[in-house]
């Protein structure tokens, strides 16, 4: 396994963040993501477990974490990559891992990340949602609800505007 990690490091300039029990955490650039995925898929990492996104306001980035497993080696690889918050675009890995398509569709809806090459990025959970991507840190849902559904003039609803 260490061979594979050092190969990824040498070939694609990946940064090894840490190892815990049977999981490796590595960081690659967004340009190299597809190549790394192709490479590890040939090395028995064929199960796509999940895709997480973290919105980091201070650094102005969205961090994507691909959780991929090898059932043969019983090892997990968590691949991190960063994309810009203003233009959140990245190549889709759905051609390599088919099941990632639905994860990408979810992240697209909740974080507004555009996955180039994903065949279907239509709405998933939120039907006819007019607002911004709701899981971004910049989206204040309390404020959104206050403005959309409550009015200051209404006696019963005034309390919602008091504390903040």
């Amino acid at each position: 396994m260490k061979d594979l990690i050092s190969k990824i490091r040498a070939k694609f300039g990946a940064e090894v963040l840490r190892k815990e029990e049977n999981q490796f955490w590595i960081k690659v650039s967004r340009e190299n993501l597809l190549n790394v995925c192709l490479f590890i898929k040939d090395n028995s990492f064929e199960f796509f477990s999940s895709l997480s996104a973290v919105d980091i306001l201070e650094k102005n980035i969205i961090e994507l974490i691909y959780h991929i497993w090898s059932k043969e080696k019983k090892i997990g690889l968590n691949i991190k990559t960063e994309i810009d918050r203003e233009t959140p675009k990245i190549n889709s890995v759905s051609k390599i891992y088919n099941s990632s398509q639905i994860h990408e569709r979810e992240i697209h809806e909740l974080f507004g990340v555009i996955f180039l090459g994903n065949p279907d990025l239509s709405e998933l959970f939120l039907e006819d949602w007019p607002g911004p991507p709701p899981f971004l840190k910049s989206f204040d849902w309390r404020n959104y609800i206050r403005e959309k559904f409550y009015s200051k003039g209404n006696k019963k609803e005034k309390g919602y505007f008091d504390n903040r």
């Binding site: 477990s49 999940s50 973290v54 959780h67």
Partner: peptide, 20 residues
């Protein structure tokens, strides 16, 4: 397979939770 991703931020609330 059920999974969670949790990221902390030195505070009482998690920074991000992903549930699979």
């Amino acid at each position: 397979e059920g999974a969670v991703y949790i990221k902390g931020n030195s505070g009482p609330n998690p920074e991000r939770v992903k549930i699979k």
